[in-house]
């Protein structure tokens, strides 16, 4: 089973300089991702950056992930 810590690690590894917090019960997860690279990007672009950090894990291990994507300035 996937732990929140796993998702946190996967996103942090794929997105440089990001601060990631993940909560979840093994099925549904909620992530807050703060990353300077989100600046000037639309919400869709930001979510795609996170999805690409997670790669194929979105297709298999992760059933449901909801996320908030912020720049440090938006915190």
């Amino acid at each position: 089973m996937v732990a929140p810590q796993d998702i946190q690690n996967w996103i942090s590894q794929g997105l440089e300089n990001s601060e990631v917090t993940v909560d979840g019960d093994g099925q549904h997860f909620e992530a807050i991702i703060v990353c300077p690279d989100f600046a000037g990007k639309s919400l869709i672009q930001r979510h795609k950056m996170v999805y690409s950090a997670l790669g194929d894990k979105m297709k298999s291990e992760i059933h449901a992930l909801s996320m908030k994507t912020l720049t440090p300035a938006e915190l």
């Binding site: 919400l43 869709i44 979510h47 909801s66 996320m67 908030k68």
Partner: peptide, 12 residues
């Protein structure tokens, strides 16, 4: 146009 999924729709 693709608007987004549940999180983005909620935020908008």
């Amino acid at each position: 146009e693709f608007v987004g999924g549940c999180d983005i729709v909620t935020q908008l």
